[in-house]
Design a protein around this nucleic acid. Structure first.
Lengths: 172, 172
DNA sequence: CTGCAACAGTTGCGTTTGCAAGTGAATGAT
DNA sequence: ATCATTCACTTGCAAACGCAACTGTTGCAG
């Protein structure tokens, strides 16, 4: 059987995975100066940008497993960055919101993050960069749908979308 | 203080990290049918492409921590995929090589990997794709140097490069 | 030669992870 | 109204991870 040949250095998933890992490794070192971890930073950033979110939605938006997220949120509550509130119209939903403290700290790493991106991309063709962001977004979109997660609506309106579970009702 | 505004969806590190995570998550599910994990697959692929490698070099090439790598190799030896040999000219170096069994299994996921990449990128502009790979490689290169890892030579010649440790001699 | 520093790997250990099972709340069918 | 199902979240548990400490080897000053 003739295998189609696979050059690792040109294999997108491999490239993506390695670059993603490395980026996050370095980033987390820098983040340590604020006492933040990468997951925390992502949570803070999403909440700052989109406002209060339910746990499930936050999980999709940050690509963090719900169980992990639940624990991380726990430690963030203890640190006073966010609050865990119950949704008024549905008592099983937990709504995560930034506290004042959380909002304050969420802005701290921004300049660093911006500088970080610049240092990674300086000297690269702006066209290539734009193209690569397009590709990355498109790829991510496909991955997300393939993984069965629907991306929550931008509007934090409670009774909104995300009402289609791609999983067909399968039960014993 | 005027923060430069950071749009998460356009932030390269964030994009990279999330896409990388998702990709690997899905990929690992598919890999399970061969009883392989993602790290194993990476190791197999690198060995298949570049030939026997020292542990440190393998660590750099796969972006896996040496300690983790050491353990993973252990389980791969137990499974009969690779062998742990001692370098003839330097008894502290461990050389990892594919066994026949390992070589055989290393080809198995290739068609899947190829299909995987196709499904992720089909319909995307070839130009954009090429550009994005360029960017990814460049970014990765910068990350690697910044992380202090020098990429080993393509030639498996033993006494080659990788003789500069970027760490200044610091000891107690 | 001798002794110290750098290297290559391995192992210990605490933390993080991600799946699966468990809990309580809402939904829907009879 | 009742009961099974689904949903949102939490918790248990075992595997994976990464750092730091440790072992053995080589290189190099003096």
């Amino acid at each position: 059987m003739m295998t189609k040949k696979l050059t690792l250095d040109d294999h997108l998933p491999y490239l993506l995975n390695r670059a993603g890992n490395l980026v996050i490794q370095l980033f987390s070192r820098d983040l340590a100066q604020w006492g933040l971890t990468v997951p925390m930073w992502r949570i803070l950033a999403v909440l700052g940008e989109r406002g209060p979110q339910r746990l499930v939605d936050l999980a999709v938006l940050t690509s963090i497993d719900v169980s992990t997220l639940s624990r991380t949120i726990g430690s963030m509550v203890r640190r006073g960055f966010v609050t865990r509130g119950v949704a008024p119209d549905n008592r099983r939903e937990v709504v995560i919101s930034l506290t004042a403290e959380g909002r304050k700290i969420s802005t701290k790493p921004v300049p660093m993050a911006v500088r970080y991106e610049q240092s990674l991309t300086s000297g690269l063709s702006a066209k290539d960069l734009a193209a690569s962001k397009r590709v990355l977004k498109a790829v991510f979109e496909r991955l997300a749908t393939q993984a069965g997660r629907s991306i929550p609506d931008k509007t934090p309106s409670r009774k909104s979308a995300s009402r289609r579970s791609s999983k067909p009702p399968a039960r014993k």
